[in-house]
Write a protein that binds this DNA or RNA. Structure first.
Lengths: 345, 345
DNA sequence: ATTAGCACTCTCTCCGCTTGAGTGCTAATA
DNA sequence: TATTAGCACTCAAGCGGAGAGAGTGCTAAT
């Protein structure tokens, strides 16, 4: 793509400028480039090249006599030129796996732990965005009588993940009826997706096929609280990225835009083609001005082949992409494993 | 105590200075005090009084010709002089209760929601610090067979709160044995505190009173994961207080000191006598230098008469104490109710 | 005891100066 | 033709001094 536009030396210098800016956070000048990186060309030549790169949109400088720093396009070049060797070594993986063990089959807890892990290893802000999981398949439901009006519903998915919730009813329900209901659901729902299960329960309620009235309330509640697996966003390590800006409002606006979830949904739906795992969103590449100073390194995680969420980190645009991409890649694979692990047993 | 030291007018002026500083965040001068608050004395007199108050340690000024601002001692006076009418009106309480309903009997979820609520209403950072709940009383335990090696343990306390966790075993356990074990525990543990339950289970394991070996592993896991109710800290709304400082490090150090929990334990254990509900900790009154610019408004929450945790907010020293004290008071009472509510049903 | 008056203090802001890093252009060079 | 040396130019950043203004502390009068 740009290999036709800019030659090897140009690329080298662009890479250098971005790399240096990531490390020092200061604009870099032609002299420094020559001296520190042992290029066999004079600073004047470098200046010409820098001017070219600026004309082509890869670099800017904040004022006339300042050094150069990358634009979003410059970062994009840097990241794209990186995306070959972005894997952790086996040793690093083992170290990481040993230090942070995630052993939890409760979905919520697990996702939270993943976001925490992301923040810990990256030193930026970790997130896990769990989207509506319509394709989750019903395996088993337990309804446990806690008191006359309190039921603990335990839902086990095909993949072996567990979701449970205490449901408070207005009217009392007998143990007998509860058991009956539980049996009916387990008989009829196995193998269906939660979406289908929801509809089937709704049908039952509408057509009043069920002889006893308790079904009504409990059915509704189950649909609402257990089988409607909503979007959830886990954010950890916000304080990690405070030091990267001197403008608090900017940090706040980033988290606001994240918490709105619209951007994340968009990233998840629009931007992933199947082959690549980790994807980087630089600055306001996606025309969210609030993201101006920030980048997102993210990966989808899946059950089987079906993507069910997005995880990754949010950090300053000048971030150590190479390391972070490798880490997010690894953790997303870890997530995939965790989500399938249940099936083995 | 100081009524002997400083007279009514002095108090009035001290109160004024603190109040004004809380609102404006700027040192206040003698002229402003006279003009804006309609005192019938000259600025010179006010100056004399201010000088006195400074000598007595209630005020300082940052440099010679600047206005006055409160010291920790000054804030302390202000807060103490406030502590009569620090209740929400019935109307406010109702508004608050209507807007934010907490209906959840799962302990963890509930505590998290409380911390979230604290942050929402206060606009500062909310926290709930749940300490080791040794006095929690065993009411019922359910052990639910999920698969050969996975058990869902559901623990219901006397107060009706629910704690559950999935336990993964190394060796398989039969449904029959699981039931037997569950029965034994329910027969023998009702009415004992979790601390006692832990010891009893330990005894059983040691003396090998139990005929089948599965008890060993599951017993240990139950002790570790269900009956050992550890300290937990829920922090919400960190971003709320970013705007109160221009030094990120300072914010970070506050949260570090909170997350260490030592200070919170200290506050909980040492500082609460029975009669007062809400307590305010101003700046580094407790000799934590990291707290220099911050105050904590907190209250214990209890089951029955036994305090089981601390909740409250962290905010800038110049905070709207009156409002915040009332809110924390109300939410702590809400917490107490939620923790006892279960018993009613 | 209170107050008017006044000298004094110290921050804050503006302004101009200097420094130095870095650029862009031009003309010479390989 | 690509590279380079040379040089004028630009602009942020840092420094210091001047002036304004807010506020104090002291003294002497009421």
């Amino acid at each position: 793509m740009f290999s036709s536009l800019i030659n090897k030396r140009k690329k080298r210098i662009l890479h250098l400028v971005v790399h240096n800016y990531i490390q020092t956070a200061r604009p870099i000048g032609s002299n420094v480039i020559c001296k520190n990186y042992g290029l066999k060309i004079s600073s004047a030549t470098v200046r010409n090249i820098l001017a070219d790169l600026e004309k082509e949109g890869y670099l800017t400088h904040p004022y006339t006599s300042a050094g150069r720093l990358p634009t979003d396009k410059g970062y994009r070049f840097y990241v794209d030129s990186l995306e070959e060797n972005n894997q952790l070594t086996v040793k690093e993986e083992m170290l990481l796996a040993a230090r942070y063990k995630i052993n939890n089959y409760e979905l919520k807890e697990m996702l939270w732990q993943l976001s925490h892990l992301l923040s810990l290893v990256s030193h930026y802000t970790g997130f896990v965005f769990s989207v509506s999981q319509e394709k989750v398949i019903f395996k088993h439901l337990k309804l446990i009588h806690l008191s006359n009006k309190k039921i603990l519903a335990v839902f086990i998915t095909q993949a072996g993940l567990i979701k449970h919730k205490v449901i408070c009813l207005r009217s009392t329900i007998t143990i007998k009826n509860l058991k009956r209901m539980c049996n009916i659901l387990n008989d009829e729902m196995v193998g269906f997706t939660v979406k289908e299960v929801r509809n089937k329960i709704l049908d039952k309620i509408k057509k009043e096929k069920i002889a006893y009235k308790e079904f009504l309330e409990l059915g509704k509640e189950l649909n609402e609280q257990i089988f409607k697996i909503k979007e959830e966003l886990y954010l950890e390590g916000i304080s990690n990225i405070l030091s990267f800006t001197n403008n608090h409002q900017r940090v706040e606006s980033v988290f606001n835009i994240l918490q709105e979830r619209k951007m994340l949904s968009y990233l998840l739906e629009e931007k992933f083609d199947k082959k690549e795992n980790v994807k980087v969103f630089i600055g306001n590449e996606n025309s969210y001005p609030q993201m101006n100073d920030w980048s997102i390194v993210s990966a989808v995680y899946k059950t089987g082949d079906y993507p069910i969420g997005l995880l990754g980190i949010v950090g300053p645009k000048r971030m150590e992409y190479s390391r972070i991409i490798a880490e997010v890649d690894y953790i997303s694979r870890m997530a995939n494993k965790l989500l399938e692990q249940g099936e083995e047993e």
